[in-house]
Lab assay of single mutants.
Amino acid sequence: RFRLSPAARNILEKHSLDASQGTATGPRGIFTKEDALKLVQLKQTGK
């Protein structure tokens, strides 16, 4: 289970993504908004 920032949680839910597909870069291993946006971008480019 990942620790998600509220913004990251919202983005992941909106795009039906799972945090385990990305890398948490925030302090103390928190999955940040920026991490979520990177994951969305990867999904949109098909990689």
Rank of each mutant, 00 (worst) to 15 (best):
G22I: 05
L42K: 15
L42H: 02
P6I: 12
T23I: 13
R28E: 14
A36F: 05
L39C: 01
Q44P: 04
F2T: 08
F31A: 05
D18K: 15
Q21H: 10
P27V: 04
A24G: 07
Q41C: 00
P6C: 14
Q21E: 14
L17Q: 04
P6D: 12
D35I: 00
P6E: 15
A24I: 03
T23K: 13
L37E: 15
Q21N: 04
P6Q: 13
G29N: 06
P27I: 03
G46C: 14
P6A: 14
F2R: 02
R28F: 12
E34T: 08
S5F: 00
Q41L: 07
F2M: 15
A24Q: 03
A19M: 13
E34H: 12
K14R: 08
L12D: 14
R3A: 04
T25S: 09
R9I: 11
K38M: 09
P6S: 14
L12T: 11
A24S: 09
L17V: 07
G29P: 03
P27F: 02
I30K: 08
Q41W: 06
L42S: 09
K47S: 13
I11G: 06
K33C: 06
A19Q: 07
K38Y: 00
Q44S: 13
G22L: 05
S5N: 08
K43G: 11
A36C: 07
K47Y: 15
R9H: 09
R3Y: 15
A36Q: 06
G29L: 02
P6L: 10
Q41V: 08
L42A: 15
A7N: 05
F31Q: 05
S20T: 12
D35Y: 00
Q21C: 11
I30L: 15
F31R: 05
A8D: 07
G22H: 04
A8C: 00
T45P: 07
N10K: 13
E13L: 10
G46Q: 15
L4C: 12
I30S: 11
E34I: 02
K14P: 13
D18N: 14
L37Q: 03
D18G: 03
D35T: 00
A36M: 06
R3L: 06
R1C: 04
S5E: 15
R3I: 15
V40P: 08
K33Y: 06
G22P: 02
T25G: 05
T25H: 03
R28C: 13
K47N: 01
P27D: 13
T45L: 11
P27Y: 01
S20C: 08
G26H: 05
H15V: 04
R28D: 15
N10S: 14
S16N: 14
I11T: 04
T23Q: 09
L37C: 06
Q21A: 13
R28P: 06
D35G: 03
K14W: 05
G46A: 08
V40F: 03
N10L: 14
L12K: 04
V40T: 01
K43D: 10
D35H: 01
S20H: 09
A8E: 11
S20A: 13
P6V: 10
K43E: 06
L12R: 06
T32Q: 06
K43L: 03
T45I: 05
A36T: 02
L4R: 03
N10C: 12
L4A: 06
V40S: 06
R9T: 10
I30Y: 08
F2V: 04
I11K: 06
E13C: 05
G46M: 13
A24E: 07
R3F: 15
E34W: 07
K14M: 11
F31P: 10
G46L: 09
A19L: 06
K43F: 08
E34Y: 05
D18M: 06
N10W: 09
K47G: 09
K38I: 03
S16L: 02
L42V: 14
A7T: 14
K43R: 09
R9L: 07
I30F: 11
S20W: 01
K47L: 07
F2N: 15
K38L: 01
S16Q: 14
D18E: 01
S20R: 09
A7Q: 14
T32A: 05
T45W: 09
I30E: 15
Q21D: 10
G46F: 05
K33T: 13
L39R: 04
R9E: 10
S16G: 15
E13N: 15
P27K: 11
L4V: 12
R28I: 00
A36E: 08
V40E: 04
T45D: 14
T32E: 05
F2P: 00
H15E: 11
A8R: 06
S5C: 02
H15S: 04
F31L: 06
L17E: 07
G26K: 03
V40A: 07
L37A: 03
T23G: 08
E34L: 05
A24M: 04
L37R: 06
D18Y: 02
L4S: 11
F2A: 03
R28Y: 13
A7I: 09
K14Q: 14
R3Q: 06
T23M: 10
T23D: 13
V40N: 05
V40W: 03
T23Y: 08
K38N: 09
